[in-house]
Design a protein around this nucleic acid. Structure first.
Length: 263
DNA sequence: GCGACAG
DNA sequence: ATCTTGTCGC
């Protein structure tokens, strides 16, 4: 697939003020509403997917939506990104991308550190995605332009962000301990987000609840729209693709793939 | 000045 | 994110 908004390719040499200004432009170009391209009901998975060893057989229902999970890992001074395309319960495409790490991790500017590798991976992907599932936030971001929004706008493809912790915003209710499986808690814009106070910018979603060594529970996922999807569709999509594990299948497979690639 | 902070 | 073995509990 190809980048359509080349002016937004992440440039690590920009200073922080320029990055923030660009993020405001990206947020203005993003859409946090459904445009009909994504239907959660058409994505429902019942069981976990196996990660193929070699090149994935391009099987699957030809007209079913394709969700591409993307995740990164780091070695030395390099960022590695893996993209795994999932269509109706099977892997129908995969690619790996790399890019040198130019800047440190800075909360709110993650895309300028990691998106280069993601773009490299997605540009060599031969199937075209109905939805991109990025690790990190989308609209749950100070300037409503998290990495999922940035990448979604770059390719002008529907995108959602799946994070393991909350960057900013305020949960509508407490996220304290054992939330029942399937619980959805809206995340609202507050003073830390450049959006009208109270705007629903995403959700905390308890995909699975089971005991862990340290704590007696598992933290909920934090999901938010990246581009061309609403907050509600975003949670429903993640819920539909969660097949017994904490992470939705596309993300979980990309996670595994990038670890293997790192070796 | 104080606190918070995706991966 | 990454550095890292065994170990507690369902």
């Amino acid at each position: 697939m190809d980048v359509v908004r080349t002016e937004y390719l992440p440039d690590p040499s920009l200073d922080q003020a320029e990055m923030k200004a660009q993020q405001r432009d990206i947020a203005a170009d993003a859409t946090f509403e459904d445009d009909g391209a994504v239907d959660p009901a058409a994505l429902r998975l019942d069981e976990p997917i196996e990660l193929p060893d070699g090149d994935p057989p391009r099987s699957g229902a030809a007209d079913a939506p394709i969700v591409v999970g993307v995740d990164q890992a780091f070695t030395d001074g390099t960022a590695i990104s893996a993209a795994i395309a999932v269509q109706s319960g099977s892997v129908v495409g995969r690619s790996i991308g790399r890019a040198p790490l130019e800047i440190p991790y800075i909360p709110g500017l993650l895309a300028y550190r990691e998106a280069g590798a993601i773009v490299d991976a997605l540009e060599s992907l031969t199937v075209d995605p109905s939805l991109l599932m990025l690790d990190g936030s989308g609209r749950i971001h100070y300037r409503q332009a998290g990495i999922a929004t940035h990448v979604g706008v770059l390719f002008d493809v529907p995108a959602v962000g799946v994070a393991k912790s909350l960057l900013c915003g305020r949960p509508a209710r407490s996220l304290e301990n054992p939330l029942p499986d399937g619980t959805r808690v809206p995340i609202l814009a507050d003073g830390s987000v450049e959006a009208p106070d109270g705007t629903v910018i995403g959700h905390a979603y308890q995909s699975r609840q089971f005991p862990t060594p340290a704590r007696r529970h598992v933290n909920p996922l934090i999901v938010s729209p990246g581009h061309r999807v609403s907050a509600t569709t975003t949670v429903e999509t993640v819920a539909a693709l969660a097949a017994g594990y904490k992470l939705p299948e596309p993300t979980r497979l990309a996670d595994r793939a990038v670890d293997v690639a790192e070796v």
